[in-house]
């Protein structure tokens, strides 16, 4: 652990004054407008907001998939905006995990190969015991030799979660992980993410528009028009719904 990491305290990801503007001149769109937030280690945070509120842009900037126009993001003690493409790629495969709405598994690889892919890219030894445990918990033990096309949507997303967690990243970014799933599969996925936070002390940042999904988180950040307009700790479905209504129709 490096010195600067300890100075960051308990935050897995910190964003300071993030702004992201798309386009220029009259056509410019300010997707993020000076957002600052800190995501503590070992906590599950949901980011919510109406369509166009900037929640996806926020996640992409946090994960180094998109570059903010101004402001900074610190992950694992490193300022993302200062990193080159290769360093950023290295940081992503070593310190972050990803779960996408569209699963994004590689069709030519089997489930097992998809899961171990990042370890191979990082030239890291695979923690077999952890892998076995992870796969068993996700109910994928007898699915490892299958290719994505032979798996159901829920199973594919569970493979994606295993892929994200195998390297024990500092933070897992989940972008609408239940968006493409039926409610039963969605619930399974959320339960598993929750379990990872409780038993493995994982840190998760999840963008969702589903109040039921948000209710699995420890904290909820509400975004509107590119700014954080509200926060909520220990959320329930009803409370999340109420806040969302308030944001959508300000008095």
């Amino acid at each position: 652990m490096r010195a600067d990491e300890t100075t960051m305290g308990e935050a897995a990801v910190t964003a300071r004054d993030l702004t992201r503007v798309y386009g220029s001149g009259d056509g410019a769109v300010r997707a993020l407008d000076g957002v600052s937030a800190s995501f503590p280690l070992g906590r599950f945070t949901a980011v919510m907001g109406p369509s166009g509120s900037g929640k996806s842009t926020f996640l992409h900037c946090l994960a180094g998939l998109d570059r903010p126009t101004s402001g900074e993001v610190v992950v694992a003690g490193q300022e993302l905006t200062r990193l080159g493409r290769t360093a950023l790629a290295r940081l992503r495969r070593e310190r972050m995990g990803f779960v996408f709405q569209a699963f994004n598994l590689l069709p030519v690889l089997t489930a097992e190969e998809n899961i171990t892919m990042i370890a191979h890219l990082a030239r890291r030894r695979i923690d077999r015991a952890w892998m076995t445990q992870l796969v068993a918990r996700l109910g994928l033990t007898d699915r490892l030799a299958h290719r994505p096309a032979q798996l159901s949507g829920g199973q594919q997303q569970r493979v994606a979660i295993a892929r994200a967690l195998l390297t024990r990243p500092d933070v897992v970014f989940a972008d609408e992980p239940t968006g493409n799933l039926d409610s039963r599969s969605g619930t399974e996925v959320l339960r598993f993410l929750r379990e990872a936070v409780e038993t493995e002390n994982a840190s998760i940042v999840m963008v969702t528009h589903d109040p039921k999904a948000a209710a699995y988180a420890d904290d909820v950040l509400f975004l509107a028009d590119g700014r954080i307009v509200d926060t909520l700790a220990e959320p329930t479905v009803d409370e999340v719904l109420a806040r969302l209504r308030r944001i959508s129709s300000p008095e």
Binding site: A89, F100, I118, L121
Partner: peptide
Amino acid sequence: VLGAVGAAER
């Protein structure tokens, strides 16, 4: 996807 999950350009 490879890029997103951390494959370097090389």
